[in-house]
Amino acid sequence: MNGPTLFGLCGAALVGLGLYGLICQPGALRKILAFNLIGSGVFLLFGVIAKRGGGALSAAGLGVDGDPVPQALIITGLVVAFAATSIAVALLLRLAEISGRSTLERAGSGSHSPTHERAPAPERAA
């Protein structure tokens, strides 16, 4: 098994695991982490595919390893993923602070998973 195939395998596994977590995990923090797992898998796949353009370049003796365009797009994507994650976590913290819940399920429907429900906090005066 060569390098690109191994990276591809890891990327596909990360996307699969992330999707599973996004669908099956009730906790919102776990969903955010799972979403980041999907993103990491996509970045990994994209980065390895960038190798394809590098073959022609290194053959031309430019000493460059990989297509620079996907690499730059991954750097952009990482920053956007970080920004989205940080604001999602901040919103989640605020939700937990106001309602005492850390899931996105409604208070009534979440009765079958009491471990994820904390005692509701009293209403805070804004």
């Binding site: 595919i49 394809r52 353009g53 022609a56 370049l57 297509d67 365009v69």
Partner: peptide, 16 residues
């Protein structure tokens, strides 16, 4: 899909 993309001939690339 990834494997198929990797196996394809380089062709015209933005890298060039």
């Amino acid at each position: 899909v990834f494997h198929a993309a990797l196996m394809q001939s380089p062709g015209a690339r933005l890298a060039d």
